[in-house]
Amino acid sequence: MIQIAVVTGASSGIGAATARRLAAEGFHVLAAARRPDRLTELVDGIRAAGGSATAVVCDVTSDESVAALAAEAVSLPGPVTLLVNNAGGARGLDPVESGSVDDWQWMYDVNVLGTLRVTQALLPALEESGAGTIVVISSTAGFTVYEGGGGYTAAKHAQTAMAGTLRLELCGRPVRVIEIDPGMVQTDEFSLVRFGGDAERAAAVYEGVAEPLLAEDIADCVAWCATRPHHVNVDRLVVRPLAQAAQHKVHRVR
């Protein structure tokens, strides 16, 4: 029987790449995000490639929306064995003294409380499967701070803390918790959202970096972790491009 994988934030970037990769690995992917047109395009592409997928419009900041996602997941034929908490994002690059409270609130709501809602809603099904896996897509910002990143790093630190706590609390139950922490990943939307649609500022983030990570690189990490034998728990996988030795150490070709 086919296994069900739920991927949040699946309409673009890492989420879309992960949905495509997991479908290629044989999962039926329940792709969840807020934009129905993007989801339809994604699912159509997966099916055209011979994979299996369903689209569900979901806002992870809404209790009702997440409950509907969970109901859809358990209605599908097959056990829900994998949840990829990918929905998230950053807004702004302002110092703490002038940071927008609204931006900080949004980042906490999406990255932290969104992960909490979806995990709580799907945990019973994951446990019932007898071999559940929860993947949390956090960030190197979850353990390293940087100027202008106070709101985002605070949210990602909280997300990392939640993943570690959940792993302790689920010890002895058949659900493993895997945290994946990407460094510099070039996607179509992450930096655009962060800078309010300013394409020039978004492009400057990757300027001179010959080979930043791509969404497909992170999808590859998710697939590898999720397809290990179930007794193997990859607690934390930190992945950066070769050009990025640390948060503040990036080789740029001028």
Results as ranks from 00 to 15, higher is better:
A49W: 04
P229I: 06
A141P: 12
V222R: 06
A154I: 05
V136Y: 08
Q159S: 12
G150D: 07
V239W: 14
G142K: 07
V57G: 03
V253W: 13
V60W: 07
A71H: 03
S138R: 00
I134F: 06
V222L: 11
L69A: 08
M162A: 11
Q120M: 07
S52K: 08
A55E: 01
V136F: 13
R252G: 03
Q186K: 13
M1A: 12
V57K: 06
R254W: 15
Y108D: 12
C225N: 03
R20G: 06
V205D: 14
A71N: 03
E147H: 15
R21D: 00
E211T: 14
P241Q: 04
E64K: 00
G130K: 10
H231V: 14
G148F: 13
G99I: 06
R91C: 04
T227G: 01
T165A: 10
E128I: 02
G89L: 12
E72Q: 12
V193T: 13
L39T: 02
A121R: 00
E216S: 12
I218Y: 09
D44G: 13
V118G: 02
A141M: 12
L170G: 06
R117N: 08
A17F: 07
N111P: 00
V43E: 11
A203E: 15
A121N: 00
V193R: 15
A16V: 01
S100C: 05
G51D: 13
C58F: 01
H230A: 07
A73C: 05
V193D: 10
E200R: 14
R236F: 04
V112K: 09
F27K: 03
T40K: 15
A219I: 05
Q3M: 06
W224Q: 05
A68D: 11
G45F: 09
T40V: 10
P77Q: 13
L237H: 11
Q244N: 08
P124W: 15
T187Y: 02
L213A: 12
M1W: 05
V96W: 07
V7E: 00
M184I: 09
L166G: 06
M1Q: 08
L168E: 15
I134W: 03
G183P: 04
T227H: 03
S129G: 06
L126P: 05
T133C: 10
R47L: 10
D235H: 12
G51I: 06
V185T: 13
D102V: 04
W224F: 15
T61K: 03
V7T: 02
A19V: 05
F143V: 10
G149A: 09
A243N: 04
I14N: 01
R35Y: 10
F143E: 14
D102M: 01
A246Y: 07
R117E: 11
Q186R: 14
G9W: 08
D63L: 07
L192F: 01
R176N: 04
W106V: 04
S12W: 04
L82S: 06
E127N: 03
G130F: 13
V232A: 07
V145W: 09
E200K: 15
G148H: 10
V96H: 04
A24P: 00
S98H: 11
P79G: 02
